[in-house]
Amino acid sequence: MRAITTNGLLALGLLAAMLLGCMLGPYPIPADEVLRALLARLQGEGYSPQIDTVLFQIRWPRVLSAALVGAALAAAGASFQTLFRNPLVSPDILGVSAGAGFGAVLGILLALPVIAIQGLGFATGLATVAIVYALARALRSQNEILVLVLAGIVVGALAGAGISLVKILADPYNQLPAITFWLLGSLSGIKASDVWNIAPAVVVGLLPLILLRWPIGVLSLGDDEARSLGVNVAFVRGVVIAAATLVTAAAVSASGVIGWVGLMIPHMARPLVGPRFDRLLPASILMGAAFLVLVDTLARTAARIEIPLGLLTALIGAPIFVWLLARGRRVWS
């Protein structure tokens, strides 16, 4: 019961964060006007040309993208931490961020259009994890998880080397700053149409995680125990890896590499709803979405220039994580 109430409050928190994200900016819009404009939009009417332009061309797509990216990263983090029975795991454990990053910077180097850069990042992110998975299967070991993680580190490092190579080849005046900015993560380039590129992949990826929430939680007991309790371990693990990779690749290809969210949010959610995955997943999704909406609002309002998101999540994430660790072992409880 407590978990349901908590998730209700977190949902309200997300809505409040999104409202705040719509209000704040160089051209502030009061809360009531945001709500009225949204209502008018829902009924297919215009509210005020100026507010409509700012709200629906710029802020709303950005707030929605931030919510989707935050939800995706936090859900992937919670899933991987449970699957790998390790609270220090983040969504890029299998190399998906490095892989997607390589594709995206390659796209920037080749001066491709934004949509193609995102598409290439998405494809290389998925391909990286496919290679990692195939490699781990080919190596066959008693300890499947260890081999999987090691394969992820190897292939991720290779993709990281590829990124470095692209940076050396890039034009230092135009391309290199764009690559660096992208690698630090940002939603500044998001347009209304981009939401429709991210949303389907995030929804398609989150759905199997939500449907399999119970067996995924049982997997955290270890393979043998999960099997003896009736879980088809190979199937569930395959689905989790595919789904979490899909949402992470979608997020990274749209927003660049944003660290900390996937690692930290599940740690913030566990003290509220406990370690049970069927409660942790919705809480992580809601908290991740609200967190990134707030951080992105800060990124575009705090200074005259856009602050890269990855920079802010690290600045906020590192102290919060240390604080969580200092609270003792209860961190992953």
């Binding site: 029975r85 609270p87 955290s220 007991l221 099997r227 003896s228 009736g230 370690p275 072992r329 992953w332």
Partner: peptide, 20 residues
Amino acid sequence: RRSLARAIGYVPQAQTMEFA
């Protein structure tokens, strides 16, 4: 897996778990 888990239960040696 499912039918087997309805036929035979396993009591492993108790170990500390990663999650509380």
